[in-house]
């Protein structure tokens, strides 16, 4: 299945893009997806403890199973205003 990954602010700068598609085999949780993302962009992992994750535009707590076509966003600490 395909997961649509979104990166913002500092994470977007590291990856050089704000959007990518990650293809996964069989079942995949957010944690599994993060591992794949960190393999592609090792420096993104250093932000892991401060980054919040949103699935389909809602913050998640802990780990959840993903489904085909889900949109997973990696959000550094926000600083609007």
């Amino acid at each position: 299945m395909k997961i649509n990954v979104l990166l913002f602010a500092s994470l977007k700068d590291i990856a050089g893009k704000g959007q990518l598609e990650i293809e996964v085999e069989g079942k995949c949780s957010v944690e599994n997806l993060s591992k794949k993302l960190y393999e592609l962009y090792p420096k993104v992992e250093s932000f892991d403890s401060s980054v919040r994750i949103a699935v389909n535009q809602e913050f998640i707590e802990g780990d959840i199973e993903l489904k085909d076509g889900d949109e997973v966003a990696y959000l550094p600490p926000v600083s609007g205003g």
Binding site: S10, S79, G80
Partner: peptide, 13 residues
């Protein structure tokens, strides 16, 4: 204003 700085996904450079 406080909620904006806590839960709205906007970032300042």
């Amino acid at each position: 204003v406080k909620r904006l700085k806590s839960i709205v996904p906007i970032w300042k450079k």
